[in-house]
Design a protein around this nucleic acid. Structure first.
Lengths: 155, 155
DNA sequence: TATCCATATTAGAACTATTATAAACTTAGA
DNA sequence: TCTAAGTTTATAATAGTTCTAATATGGATA
């Protein structure tokens, strides 16, 4: 924390530890809920402050891939992200970005480069084809959840 | 409009025409203000509805590069965008995207691919070096605006 | 042209993520 | 320990977007 030039408060350490243990790209709300279990006095504004401070210090990165809420990635190095429109899971994609910070594009100086992909993740594609096959043979099962799973994470 | 499978109402035509004439990637609010000049009865909810309908029909694209508000691009084909953190202008970048709709990445099916770049645009870099030189020679001028300019647009 | 139905628009309220505010509290250095 | 700067807290305020229900419109049909 001191390497980042930040005063190491218990709130900041708790938030950073939560992100370290949860590579699910949680929202500020989810960080708040998660950290508050072991830290009931935590204020939501503090979570926003801490996430902002960590982001500005380069310790984490903020993802604005979903309009509803920002998500946070413990890994600050630039890499593409994939958001599944069926389950809502957000995956890291292990590909080098073609445009990197420091590059010049049309004369513009690039400081941050984000690649956001939207579509259907590998698991939801499988689920979907399974459901189709099962409906052909008369087997029924509950439909694929459209809500985000709590155990979401990188593959 | 009919090509997009949408009923061509005057509201939809007005919004689409505004986007056609303003390649500044306006927000919903800016579209609302701009269209309302010639269409005082327009409701803001209609602007949201229309932008959403156009987006879903593939006639325009929605950009979530800035957390504050979505922006809209008359050009629906995928290309990178650059947001200047000094003037707030949003520029189209004429580079082919390395990842395109239809691709598979780590098994995930890509439907939409967005490349968002943040930094300092070519004009603001020039302004900044000008100001530095002038301050050396004692010449003063007002600092670079941090607010978005109304004549913003692609170069 | 008149009628009808599905769809679109309107105005305003409601919702939600985020930011601002001001007081109380920590941290770290003298 | 004392102090100044920075941080946390609780709450209010803000702003973008969505929801609701009543009204209006487009366009197919008779």
């Amino acid at each position: 924390m001191r390497k980042l030039g930040l005063v190491p408060t218990i709130q900041r350490l708790a938030v950073l530890e939560y992100l370290e243990n949860n590579h699910t790209h949680p929202t500020a709300e989810e960080v708040y809920q998660g950290v508050r279990d072991q830290f009931p006095s935590l204020a939501k504004a503090t979570v926003y402050n801490v996430l902002d401070a960590l982001k500005k210090a380069g310790g984490i990165q903020e993802l604005t891939i979903a309009r509803e809420a920002a998500r946070y990635d413990y890994n600050p190095s630039p890499h593409p992200h994939f958001l599944c429109r069926v389950c809502g899971n957000l995956y890291d994609v292990d590909l080098p970005c073609s445009i990197r910070p420091g590059d010049e594009i049309c004369g513009h100086l690039v400081e941050v480069a984000q690649v956001y992909l939207h579509g259907i993740c590998v698991q939801c594609q499988k689920q979907n084809s399974q459901n189709k096959n099962e409906s052909k043979t008369g087997v029924r099962r509950s439909s694929v959840s459209t809500k985000r799973r709590d155990d979401a994470g990188a593959p």
